[in-house]
Amino acid sequence: MSDNIYNENEALKALHKLDVQRMPDELEARLLAVPERYPKKRKPWLGVAVSGLVAASVLLVFSHFPGREGVAPPQQYSQQEIDNARKELALAFHYLSDASQQTGRTLNNRLSESSSAALFKAAGYPLKGSEEKNGQHEYQ
C-alpha cells in the first residue's frame, strides 16, 4: 500500500479516510467545569446604573400622574361658575375692544395730523402748533 501512495489520487484517498478526532472524555469534563472555575463577575456599576434608571423612570411616571387626581376625569363646574366665567370673559373682551378702538383713533389722528403738516410744510405754509421748537418737531 505504501507504494501506491506515490499516486496523487491515492494520497487524497487516504486523506479522506482520516476521521474527525474524538475529544477525550476527561478533557470534555474539564471543559464542562469551566463555568464553575471561571464564574462571571457581575459588574458593580451595572447594578447601580440599573437601579438609578428604575428610580428615575418611577419618578418620571409619578411626576406626570401625581396620585389619583392626575388620572381622574376632569373636574365638573357648576352652572353659576360657568356664567361668572362667561361674564368675566365678556368684560375682558369689552375692555380689549375699547382699548383697541382708542388706540386706532389716536393713531388715525396722529397720522392725519402729521401728513397735513408735512403737506403744508412742503407748500411753505407752516400750520399753527406744528412749528419746530428748539430743533425738535412737535409730533415727535
Partner: peptide, 18 residues
C-alpha cells in the same frame, strides 16, 4: 447561560479538538 455553554461544548467539542 451555563446550559447554553454546555450545549455548545457537547455539540462542537470534537470539531474543535480535531
Amino acid at each position: 447561560m451555563e446550559k447554553r455553554y454546555r450545549a455548545l461544548v457537547s455539540q462542537y467539542k470534537n470539531q474543535v479538538y480535531s
